[in-house]
């Protein structure tokens, strides 16, 4: 999994579950070649019975029988997420939406912000639950 800033994740894994724009898809080894766009969401990786969750925000996934390449604008490991900041971002976005945004662009920005915050919260909460 690569972003323009860094290589986020590179491991031998048993399975991934990715947030494609059309819904979550699970990929096992020897999957048929697939190319799909990703939405913001939880990206799950299973490796030796352990599940790891990352947050991804858009991008593409290239699936081959023996590898999965994810190119995304941004991705975060669960432990990198600042849950309180995500909460603040969620509250702020919800306030903007509740107050009625000034323009369509504002509304769109707030919705995107809200969605990102929700993904971050889900990913970081999931981590705490498992511990």
């Amino acid at each position: 999994m690569i972003t323009p800033e860094r290589k986020v994740y590179e491991e031998d894994v048993d399975m991934v579950v990715a947030p494609a724009t059309e819904g979550y898809v699970g990929i096992l080894p020897h999957h048929a070649p697939l190319f799909t766009t990703l939405g913001p969401g939880e990206f799950k990786v299973k490796r030796g019975g352990v599940e790891e969750v990352l947050a991804v925000f858009g991008g593409f996934m290239d699936v081959r029988s023996d590898r999965v390449v994810v190119l995304t604008d941004a991705a975060e490991h669960a432990e990198e997420i600042d849950a309180s900041r995500a909460q603040q971002a969620r509250d702020r976005a919800q306030e903007v939406l509740a107050a009625g945004p000034a323009s369509a662009a504002d509304e769109q920005r707030a919705r995107a912000e809200l969605q990102r915050a929700l993904v971050r919260l889900r990913v970081s909460e999931g981590r705490r639950r498992r511990r």
């Binding site: 494609a20 724009t21 059309e22 898809v25 048929a32 070649p33 697939l34 190319f35 799909t36 766009t37 593409f60 081959r64």
Partner: peptide
């Protein structure tokens, strides 16, 4: 390769190229 595209090749390419 016989790729499967989701949602479809056109949509995907129209996102990949500008990106």
């Amino acid at each position: 390769l016989q790729y499967i595209f989701e949602p479809d090749p056109e949509t995907v390419l129209n996102e990949v190229i500008p990106r």
